[in-house]
Simulated scan of single mutants.
Amino acid sequence: MHNVAPSTPASAAYKERLSPSLWILASAAVCAPMAAIVFSPIDGTLALVVGLIVGVLIVVTLVAAAPTVAVKDGVLRVGRAHIGVDLLGAPEVLTGEEARAARGRELRRDDWHMLRGGIDGVVRVAVLDDDDPATHWVFSSRTPERVAAMITRAQRGR
């Protein structure tokens, strides 16, 4: 029998890519036939090749440029922004009508936010740092319960 060291909870991490919805990707792919139409008077084969390249490039760019949400090594990263979890309060998980309100009428100008259409879940976390101009971080997540659990876990140092 092999002795396997249990994985340390400190090495546990969470990462999620906020990729565009299928409808947005399908809408972006419509650019392919538009590009092909532009080149069709020149050459039919060229039009097909250009259309295919344009469609693939747009879809790949949308997916590659999508922001990520990550909790690792005591740091919450949302897109290019990051903050230590020790500077955050307890995370709130918002879904349904609560999430809709958090993305709309309850979103304040002093909140930092990264919201994505087509993603229902929202996590709201109070910022405890008095020097930070943002009072809350409000961001989209497809699995807000998991993000909140990982933030809480990282705050406890486990």
Rank of each mutant, 00 (worst) to 15 (best):
I83M: 14
A70T: 01
M34D: 11
D129C: 09
T143F: 10
V69P: 04
R142Q: 12
P20R: 05
G89E: 11
A148H: 01
S7Y: 08
G55S: 07
W137M: 00
G84S: 06
Y14K: 01
M114L: 15
A12K: 06
V123P: 09
D86E: 11
V125W: 03
R156H: 13
A12D: 15
V71S: 03
V38H: 14
P33C: 04
A47R: 04
V30F: 15
L128S: 13
V125K: 01
A154F: 00
L22E: 09
A99T: 00
D110P: 04
V50Q: 04
P133L: 04
G117A: 14
E98Y: 12
L18W: 05
L128D: 14
R100A: 13
M34K: 02
A32M: 14
G96E: 04
Y14C: 03
F39D: 06
V63T: 01
R105K: 10
A66W: 02
R124T: 06
D73I: 07
G96R: 05
D73E: 15
R108P: 00
T8A: 13
L94Y: 06
A5S: 13
D129Q: 07
I24H: 04
R153E: 10
I53Q: 03
V54Y: 00
E106S: 13
A101N: 10
R100D: 09
D131E: 14
S140F: 11
I37L: 15
P91E: 10
V54F: 05
H113V: 01
L25I: 03
H136R: 08
I83K: 13
A66N: 00
I24P: 02
K15W: 07
T143E: 14
T152I: 02
E92T: 08
V85Q: 11
I37G: 15
L52V: 09
V122S: 07
V50S: 07
G44K: 12
E92N: 13
S141M: 08
T61S: 12
W23C: 05
V93A: 04
L107F: 08
V59W: 07
L57W: 00
V93I: 06
A101W: 03
A26G: 15
G44V: 10
G104E: 00
V60G: 13
A35D: 06
V127T: 04
D120F: 00
V93D: 09
